[in-house]
């Protein structure tokens, strides 16, 4: 029997991936699991890909997640979803923002932003390679809730539906981590994500 759960979170520098992992860590800790988180800092701060691994359960050894191992991927940007998709296990869950942020090689015209990412992921979901695919316009949700910078929190809301923790644990984590002046908008954004596929 599998001892643990692996969640890979990817995005672009500045999208709040590190905050997302802190939120999740708070929730997981509240439920007394073993927990390891691995982040890559440094040059990634300067608009590069940001990647965080969260692993929890009865026993966790390596903090790393390898290709084919992630039970869940949360991708705050579409190209990043495509970049990290090989890391998902067969039948795993992909929560992905439809937002596009062009990387410099695309901006300068050296490479093209792939146009068919969503279609390809849909096809993989239909054949069961991706177990569940949740594509979300997270930026729009967050804008409607008054805090466009909280888009990743909407994705956490979507992901939360699949994880074995109650909604209140996430709200408690938001309260503990998000500065008071941004709390209301973050809570609203989280709940909008949480209810996105159930309404």
């Amino acid at each position: 029997m599998k001892n643990n759960t692996s969640i890979l979170m990817g995005g672009v520098g500045g999208q709040g991936i590190v905050l997302a992992s802190r939120l999740l860590a708070h929730v997981i800790q509240a439920h007394n699991h073993e927990l390891k988180i691995s982040e890559i800092h440094g040059m990634a701060q300067r608009g590069g890909s940001v990647i965080t691994y969260v692993r929890f359960g009865r026993e966790v050894f390596s903090p790393l997640i390898e290709p084919g191992q992630a039970d869940y991927i949360l991708a705050a940007e579409k190209l990043e979803a495509w970049r990290w998709l090989p890391y998902l296990r067969r039948g795993g869950t992909m929560v992905c923002s439809t937002q596009e942020i062009k990387p410099v090689p695309v901006i300068t015209g050296k490479q093209e932003y792939p146009k068919t990412i969503m279609e390809k992921m849909q096809a993989l979901a239909e054949e069961g390679t991706i177990g569940r695919l949740y594509a979300v316009n997270a930026l729009e949700i967050a804008e409607k809730c008054g805090q466009p910078k909280a888009a990743t929190v909407a994705l956490i809301g979507v992901l939360a539906r699949s994880l074995p923790f109650p909604c209140e644990s996430y709200l408690a984590a938001l309260k503990a981590i998000v500065p008071t002046r941004h709390l209301a908008a973050n809570e609203k954004t989280f709940l909008a994500g949480y209810n996105y596929f159930t309404e």
Binding site: L85, Y87, P103
Partner: peptide, 20 residues
């Protein structure tokens, strides 16, 4: 222990996202 979910897709290459 595990293998990549999908092989690299030559039709849909992933542009690098270098720091800038």
């Amino acid at each position: 222990l595990t293998a990549p979910l999908i092989a690299a897709d030559p039709e849909t290459p992933v542009p690098a996202r270098p720091p800038v």
